[in-house]
Design a protein around this nucleic acid. Structure first.
Lengths: 238, 238
DNA sequence: AGCACTTAGGGTCGCGGTGACCAAAACCCT
DNA sequence: AGGGTTTTGGTCACCGCGACCCTAAGTGCT
């Protein structure tokens, strides 16, 4: 089964989500960082951060590396989204892109050097992007919204401990709709994914809320075909 | 952003499901075809059908083509599963495999020339396969089972029209558990995905069941990022 | 013809989860 | 001390689902 030269370039791109106040509503909403292309094709258009896969790194490692290089971000969550392989996605060259999606905390997003070539945009209000990247972002947004309801990815937007209101606000930001505080509490309590700590947060002019942490002994519903083993050198911080 | 030679081979493999009676229980269950490798690495091991992506064909087209070439099958359903890209998946060469999963009807599976190099196995009882293919099949099976509950993929195992009992038996075969006939009926009826025809099936020694067909006007819940547009020359038969 | 048999198809009922809404608790600030 | 604000718990109607029962309508046998 000898193989001829394929001349198919293998790229990795990542849709990175962080939560920030939306410029219009003022409510927290998903934002993503884009990089401005400085070469053809689609020169000067905004595009997803990405790059080529090195010969001796896994796809996930490539995604994490490109993320770090272009936006200086280390995600708290990273998952494969889809492999895009239409023949005419890129003019001239044949490029297959394996796209990942990632979540970062707001404080991490602050650190990312924003400038002429990297800028954050509200995920629901993007300019026309290079390649098929608008379609990709829409799909990533759909996955984020469906998955936040049955998985535990909201933790990736939060610190080690958090109040139920903070967790609820993450869900509200992702789903873009208000949730009943009391019902939300019961849901997460009965799901068993949360463990109450002994501490509460004082200082607000209201009843001090309890701090919770995630129950590490519970499995994620769906963490892909590779289960839990981290491949290669990727380290997902908790 | 000049790119060096990557020397990463891009392959496509497919997990093909058909329903057949299980050798032990006798009940209908998922089977998949495997091909025997005739070259290193993993020579003489069973493996998923697949091959290299041609420079000017989409990933989906490549999957459909390899399917046809190796097993003479045309799937009624074809969807991307995952891109596997660990560095050491294949000894020697660096191979990234975009894996698809497909559904074929039992009568189609009959046609597939079975022989020394192609054989069907019960999906839950496989030998040790080449590469990471055991993991891949397990993941595909998981996807099939979760998706049959909220999507309409069961139609891919059936003909144009079918009775509710036939549809239920497909679900039972996939989920490997019996379902209540009355409750199943209400579920699919209230979902609106089915349209009753005027015909019934006579000949059985019992009340003749009505034939149904799928409601084409209803959208699939999740058909991937590319929506419904068929890319390239892939023709998925109905 | 009539009866037995078999599957189709419909009815009922209890349970659990969800959402809408209300009420109390606990803290801060004035 | 009292008002304001958020947390936290309670109630209740509703819906979907599963378990279970019953009737409908054919075939084939006697």
């Amino acid at each position: 089964m000898a193989r001829e030269r394929q001349d198919i370039a293998l790229a990795v791109s990542t849709v990175i989500f962080a939560l920030r106040p939306h410029p219009e509503t003022g409510l927290s909403a998903p934002w993503i960082p884009l990089v401005r292309r400085i070469a053809a094709p689609f020169e000067s258009r905004w595009a997803l951060p990405g790059g080529w896969v090195a010969p001796r790194e896994s796809l996930e490692d490539a995604a994490a590396r490109n993320l770090l290089e272009t936006t200086a971000l280390e995600p708290t969550y990273l998952e494969q989204l889809y492999a895009f392989g239409a023949v005419d996605r890129s003019p001239e060259e044949r490029v297959v892109s394996v796209v990942y999606w990632a979540l970062v905390r707001a404080d991490q997003a602050q650190q990312s050097r924003e400038g002429e070539n990297v800028r954050w945009f509200p995920a629901d209000d993007l300019p026309q992007l290079a390649f098929d990247h608008n379609v990709i972002v829409d799909y990533a947004l759909w996955r984020l919204r469906t998955k936040v309801e049955y998985s535990r990815i909201a933790r990736a937007f939060l610190g080690e401990t958090f109040t139920l209101t903070e967790l609820r606000e993450v869900h509200e930001a992702v789903l873009q709709k208000p949730l009943d505080a009391a019902n939300f509490r019961r849901q997460v309590e009965s799901s068993g994914t949360l463990v109450p700590t002994d501490s509460v947060v004082t200082g607000g002019r209201h009843r001090p809320p309890r701090l919770y942490r995630y129950n590490e002994t519970i499995e994620l519903v769906d963490n892909g075909p590779l289960g839990h083993e981290k491949t290669g050198s990727t380290r997902v911080v908790s």
